[in-house]
Design a binder for these strands. Sequence first.
RNA 1: GGCCCCUUCGUCUAGCGGUUAGGACACCGCCCUUUCACGGCGGCGACACGGGUUCGAGUCCCGUAGGGGUCACCA
Length: 462
Amino acid sequence: MTVTRFAPSPTGYLHIGGLRTALFSWLWARRQGGKFLLRIEDTDLARNSQAATEAILEAFEWVGMSHDGEAVYQSQRFDLYRRHIARLLDEGKAYYCYMSKEVLDALREEQQKRGERPRYDGRYRDGTLGPVEGVEPVVRIKAPLEGSVTIEDGIKGPVTFNWDEVDDFIIARADGSPTYNFVVAIDDAFMGVSDVIRGDDHLSNTPKQLVVYRALGFKEPKFFHVPMILNEAGKKLSKRDGATDVMEYKHQGYLPEALLNFLVRLGWSHGDQEIFSLEEMLALFDPNDINKSASAYNPSKLLWLNGHYIKNSPNDRLIKLLHEEFECDIRGHDAQEILLDLCKEKAQTLEEVKAQAQLFISRPTAYNPKDLALATPQALELLERFVAHLRHSGGPHLPVEYQAEIDRFLKESGAKMPALGKPLRLALFGQAQGPSLSDALAILGIEEVAARLEGLVSAVNT
RNA sequence: GGCCCCUUCGUCUAGCGGUUAGGACACCGCCCUUUCACGGCGGCGACACGGGUUCGAGUCCCGUAGGGGUCACCA
């Protein structure tokens, strides 16, 4: 069975890089009918917070990704780690090292000065050096001294490391707590993870983890090292650009499916297809098809996708989101459907849908000074006549009916569309630029139109 | 610096020895049009460089350059 996992360390919110690797893992597990597990890597008690864990869970919930079973917290599995450290010690595959941090630092500094790679020299490996008074030992695991390993990475292909590049790294600190490369291997093995999909910043950690797998006789998983996401300038993602909290996207009016679609196309593709429903992703995604190279964060494409998904969202969903997330209540509006159809057509975010809707919900509180010049006495008079015309017409209701009245009025009055349209938009929205007038009239209704015209008239007269 | 990874339009990418190197976003132009958008049509625009292998290379090999990652008692 395919078992994947997402293993964040709860030191902050979840950003799109993390969300993407989680998405890849999730899609692959689901496609294979396997399991997608969540493991919270909180062994570094000082840097973790419960709030961060909750933020990650919240983001998962928003995008609709669910993990199987209970989340695993590493902080609650110290017994498991301790047992295996003891076992390795017993079997002579790990050993106590009494080199203090200070001595180690001094060694490294010296090596660096000589132009060598800073590394542990293995002085306690063969057990000939005894304990040092006053030094709590760390536990180091024995890495092979020669030869090499080749990782058959599902994305990068075969990657070879020489063992002499791999130190006898620390698996337990002086205080007895286990370290990252050790617990990752233990947990992945015990959780039955078959496919490790993670950022390629972990590629060079992999040999270390294989040392643990091998020492304990665990079955090695398949690895997929996903290239990083860079910012628009091709540099590492920072908080300034894409590394913002995933939930920020929600607050800015992005739809989760747009974000997911955007992320799945970063590094992965299926021919020329750009739009992927969740079902399609689930049916098509394969981590073996992920590109080898890093990709840059491209906010305008995200925006485009978001606009696409907004246009294709049912109105009632949008109404609900607008109400719940954006304090914009258009529930029960007389012309709800027309209003939403109009608003979502040009919007790329829910914020923009809201801004558009706001034009109808509330009357203009100010008029664009530049456009106010349109409100000439003749124009106002024409508008008055237009409203009177609407009142005496057969009671238009739909946009097409209003359009017919506009056409009839234009014909009867001899006025041209711009002469009517520009000041009418000014009266309705406070600016010469705005939604289609036939739609606008249908949404507002004659009385509201009359009221807004009055508003303009009194604004001009004061 | 050592080791490892990467390199097709500005960006995301298709390509899997023979293509006028395709699509998408962005940009520009035209059309639609009562404004702004949407939409439609079109345009601009790429195989990092140098050597091989081959009848033939974006595709395979080797270098170079550039970018990235990693070298912790962080994860």
